[in-house]
Simulated assay, not measured.
Amino acid sequence: MRIAILHGSNDAYGASKVLCQEVECLVSLGHEVLVIVPHSGPLASELAPFGAAVSVVVDPSLVVLRRSKLTDLLHPLILRHDVARADVVVLWTLALSAYIPVLRLRRRRFYVSVHELLLGRVGGLLVRTLLAAGSFPVCACSEATAAWLHDHGVGRDRVTVTSPVFSAIDDVPARTVHDPLTVAVVGRVNGHKGHLEVARAFQSPELSGAGWRLLLFGAPYPGQDDALQAVLGLVHRDPRIEYRGEAASVSAIAEEIDAVACFPSTPEPFGLVPIEAWRVGVRSVGFADGGAGEVLPVVGGLGVPRTDFPDRDIASALVGLAAMVHARVALPQPARVNPLFSQDRRRALITGVLARS
C-alpha cells in the first residue's frame, strides 16, 4: 500500500523521531510512504536510507494547529492530489487533526497518531470535537495518553498504544562519575520542557555548592524565543550552568553527563529521553507522571511526585539521584527492557491499525 503521513513539524525531537520509527516499520512491511511536512528540516536526510520507498515533500500550505503560528489556520483545507490517492492517510499528532473532517467527508482510510497530552480545556475540547466521533483508529504514544483520550470520549477499543521503537542492545555501558556531578536537560526550549525549572532549582540551598553542573540542550521553535531568553538569564548568572544549543542525541553527549533531568511544566505524553539515556548507561530522574512516569521505573530512573513547589521537588530529586549515581546502583539489564520497545511488536500493532483504518 501507499501510505501518506501528514506531519506538522520537521525537527529532531520526539514526534519526528517516532515518525522515523513508524516509517521504518511501514517500509519493512512492504509499504511505500509519502511524508508531507510544512517546512524543510532533517527528516529528508533521516529518511534517505530508505531510498525510493520513502519520499518527503515540503508543503508550506499544510494546515497545522499550533498556538505559536495560528496564521496556518488561514490556509485552505485541501487534500493534495498525492495524498488523496494514498491507500491510507496518517495524521501525525493532533496538530493535523483539522484534516479529520475532510478525510471523513471524502471517505478516505486514515488513522490519527497522538503524541500530545493536552490536559487543559482546549485539548479536551479538541479531542471531543474531532476524535471522539467516528470509528477511525487512533494510536497513542503511551498508556497515559490513551487514558486521556478515553477520558474525553474516544472509545478505548479504538485506541492502540504504540510505544517508540529502539533497536536491541546487548549491554548497558558503565560510566565514570564526573566531578562535579553533571546533569543535562534535553529537549525543545519552549518553556515547558524543564530547562528553566531545573536551572531555577540549581539556585536552591541543596544544590548551591560547587559539586553540581548543569548542561542545557535544545533550541526554540520559531516564535518561542522568549523561552530561551528566560533560560539564558539564569545561565549568565550561574557559571555552573551552560547552554549548549542542539544535541544530536543523548548518545552524542553521554560522555559529558551523569544523568538527564526530565521535569516538564506539565506531564509529557511519553519519555523518550529516559530510554535514550538508559541505552547509553546514563541515569534519569523526573516527575513520575504522564508517559515519563511509565518509563522511569522501566529504565531504573528516579521518579518523584509533582507538587505545587517544583523548585523544591527538583532539588530533592536531584539530591536523591546523586546518591544513586555515587552508589553505582545498577541499571536494568537489556533482557528486561528490550522487548518492550521492539520493532516486531510495533509492526504487529501497525498491521492491526492498518486493517481497521
Rank of each mutant, 00 (worst) to 15 (best):
I78Q: 13
L354Y: 01
A247P: 10
S45L: 09
F270L: 15
V189P: 03
S16Q: 12
V172L: 11
V285H: 08
G209V: 04
V64L: 00
F136Q: 13
A146M: 04
I275R: 04
P76W: 01
K17E: 08
F166N: 07
S163N: 13
R306D: 11
A327P: 10
V154Y: 00
L94C: 13
G134V: 02
L47H: 09
H115V: 11
E197L: 10
F270C: 14
H326G: 05
L119N: 14
N10H: 04
A86T: 08
G134D: 06
P49N: 07
P173A: 08
S265D: 07
C25W: 09
P173F: 04
P173C: 08
T307N: 12
A355V: 01
F166D: 05
G218W: 13
S97F: 11
T71N: 00
L126Q: 07
P332I: 11
V177C: 10
G120K: 06
Q21C: 03
L29P: 10
P310Y: 12
I253G: 01
E276I: 08
L349T: 03
V54I: 12
E32Y: 05
L6V: 00
V161L: 12
V282D: 02
S342T: 07
H178T: 04
Q224T: 09
A327V: 05
V88S: 03
F309E: 15
A132I: 06
F202W: 09
Y111E: 00
D311Q: 14
E22R: 14
L62A: 01
Y13V: 01
L216K: 11
L26P: 04
P137D: 02
I5R: 06
V154F: 00
A98W: 13
D238H: 10
R175T: 03
V122W: 05
I241R: 08
G303R: 09
F309Y: 14
G41Y: 04
E24T: 14
A227P: 12
D308I: 15
G303S: 09
L125M: 04
G191H: 07
R156C: 03
S265L: 09
V295P: 05
G155V: 02
L62R: 03
L26R: 04
A254C: 03
C139I: 03
P60E: 05
Y99N: 04
N10T: 07
S135T: 06
A52N: 08
S284R: 14
L96W: 00
G233A: 15
A348H: 13
I36Q: 11
P305W: 13
I5V: 15
P164R: 03
A322E: 12
P267A: 10
H236G: 08
T162L: 15
A84P: 06
A327R: 14
L70H: 06
F202Q: 02
R109A: 12
D87F: 07
R279E: 02
E256Y: 01
P42R: 03
C262M: 14
P76M: 04
D11P: 15
I257P: 01
L126A: 06
L354K: 00
E256V: 00
A254V: 00
A210E: 05
P38F: 08
V260K: 04
I257G: 01
V112K: 11
C141G: 02
A201F: 05
L296P: 15
G41T: 04
P76L: 01
A168P: 09
V159I: 15
I241G: 05
A210P: 03
